[in-house]
Design a protein around this nucleic acid. Structure first.
Lengths: 106, 106
DNA sequence: CATTCATTTGGCCATTCGGCCAAGGAGCCA
DNA sequence: TGGCTCCTTGGCCGAATGGCCAAATGAATG
């Protein structure tokens, strides 16, 4: 694996990694329903505002969401909806794992 | 978000998180071509065998790959091929980011 | 049964992550 | 202007991650 290939895998991994956190996963799913401002998400998640803000900046930095300031509020929205496709695949991974587990405990 | 919902997001995030590492991403892509034993992957990646072995166990624990011992070697294979769908979406995230960047530097 | 080869596991260390709190803008309204 | 609300940033700290080396395990072969 040369340096160029390595950089490509790192860029890809960064995007996926950004989704690899329960709170950020929740945020992405919620933004799929429509734009939300920071305190709305904060209320839903039940964490500190600063925590949510940092999660949002992670998602923004990799290009999954975008922000728009309107008045005193900042509204976030999903920039790349195809990330939602992850969910169905993840579910099938979880199911296949459940199946494996059942097999082992048979 | 109640405890049950939280647990569901954690389980999902764990699967995605397992993909969120350049080396593991490479391994998944390579296993999509067919089964590989540990040292083959080790050679391709160019890291320590123990490192690769640990990456493989991460992927195995979340149910993305499976292992099969044959003789003195352990062959890994992709259990849930739909994870490959991630790649095209990740590419479009990267492209949308590139586009944003171009807009900013205009 | 000793040895060798393929892999996993444990330990250690540096780095990153994720959470909260506190402080710092930025816009709005009196 | 002063004070409010909304959000971001910096700092701190405990926990998790990722890498290597060294040691343990397990199978195959002499």
């Amino acid at each position: 694996m040369d340096a160029k290939a390595k950089a490509r895998y790192e860029a890809r991994a960064a995007v996926i990694k950004a989704m690899g956190h329960p709170t950020r996963l929740f945020i992405v799913e919620e933004l799929a329903r429509g734009e939300r401002c920071v305190w709305e998400l904060t209320e839903m998640v039940g964490a500190d505002v600063s925590t949510i803000s940092k999660h949002l900046s992670v998602l923004k930095n990799v290009g999954i969401v975008q922000d728009e300031k309107r008045g005193s509020q900042v509204f976030y929205s999903l920039l790349v909806p195809c990330v939602l496709n992850f969910f169905s695949c993840v579910e099938s991974v979880l199911q296949s794992r459940a199946k494996e587990h059942a097999k082992l405990t048979k």
